[in-house]
């Protein structure tokens, strides 16, 4: 029988942090969520395939360790904890790997996010925005088949977020992210059996209509602290390498601006910068879900001052 969600994990967690004081403080915060935590000053546990889940406190690493980490080909996805903006470092880290980043607040990372991330890393139950919203939050759903529906849905979300009292700048971010998610699912995600993408090079002003079995699902809701929006497509065609490339070049500020046709090539990085927490779940060939979460509990300045969490989960291929 699987362990209950909130039970201490018997597998434990290794926290890499050379600073004993800082590491000890963070380990105690993590322990309350995941059970036993052992500290390591070196990066060695990352290369041990038998090690339990390993988390790296990035801010605590030395410069040499950061360089070594960027070069390491770790057997498991990285789970990074960081306090501040590590933009330059992330450019290197995202270049050719999957890195999961969780922002550490004063009392450690958000316990719910940490539990969800660890559960998703250890198991293959990766889908669902509910995992990131408090229990009881009502989630609204709309099926989309046509790009013509996008403008109307943006108006619906604007009205909904206004009714919740969300400040205008945060509402703008919600609209931006929703637009990017819908556009990606309708234009970029569709893939034929020969792996060609029929709509990806079309101008986003051209109407695209999907077949009934290809419809995408827009979901949105709010738990009083976070506003969440997700879009799920039935293609699962987004490749991790494409995400690495987009985020890495975005972090470097070296945007590969596509001026010819189709999308601008900026979408993923544009989204990441507009969210408190960005989650991409992929079941290759079957489903992709993009989840965006924005902290709406305060003013825009609170959102802007906080770091950005990012998670990418890719299911093992079932084909």
């Amino acid at each position: 029988m699987p362990p209950a969600l909130n039970a201490p994990s018997p597998e434990g967690l290794v926290l890499i942090c050379p600073d004993e004081v800082e590491g000890g403080r963070l380990a105690r915060a993590l322990q309350r969520t995941v059970g036993p935590v052992s500290l390591s000053a070196s990066l060695a546990p990352l290369m041990d395939p038998k090690a339990p889940l390993v988390a790296v406190y990035y801010d605590g690493l030395s410069q040499d360790q950061r360089k070594a980490l960027a070069r390491m080909d770790t057997p498991a996805p990285l789970l990074l904890l960081c306090r501040g903006d590590q933009t330059e470092a992330f450019a290197e880290l995202f270049e050719n790997r999957t890195a999961n980043v969780l922002v550490v607040q004063e009392n450690g990372p958000d316990a719910g996010d940490l539990l969800t991330t660890i559960r998703k890393l250890r198991r293959q139950e990766i889908f669902g925005m509910e995992k990131y919203l408090r229990w009881g939050a009502e989630i609204h759903e709309v099926a989309l088949r046509s790009s013509v529906q996008r403008a109307g849905m943006l108006d619906v979300l604007e009205s909904f977020s206004t009714s919740l009292g969300v400040p205008s700048r945060l509402r703008g971010l919600i609209g931006t992210v929703t637009d990017e998610f819908m556009t990606n699912a309708l234009y970029n995600a569709p893939m034929r059996s020969d792996r060609t993408r029929p709509y990806s090079r079309r101008q986003r002003t051209e109407t695209v209509t999907l077949e009934a079995h290809q419809e995408v699902l827009l979901r949105y809701g709010c738990d009083g602290v976070r506003f969440g929006v997700s879009v799920t497509d039935p293609f699962g065609s987004l490749e991790a390498s494409r995400i690495h490339e987009a985020l890495s070049s975005g972090f470097r500020g070296a945007y590969n601006l596509n001026t010819a046709d189709g999308g601008a090539g900026l979408g993923l990085f544009h989204v990441l910068n507009s969210l408190s927490h960005f989650v991409i779940n992929i079941d290759p060939g079957n489903r992709t879900e993009m989840i965006g979460l924005i902290d709406i509990s305060g003013a825009y300045r609170r959102f802007a001052a906080a770091g950005r969490s990012f998670n990418l989960f890719v299911m093992e291929t079932t084909e």
């Binding site: 637009d179 990017e180 986003r204 601006l257 601008a264 900026l266 544009h270």
Partner: peptide, 14 residues
């Protein structure tokens, strides 16, 4: 100007 999408960024730069 209240919002800008990624394709809007491209159009603006052009």
């Amino acid at each position: 100007v209240t919002q800008i999408s990624s394709t809007g960024v491209r159009e603006w730069i052009l």
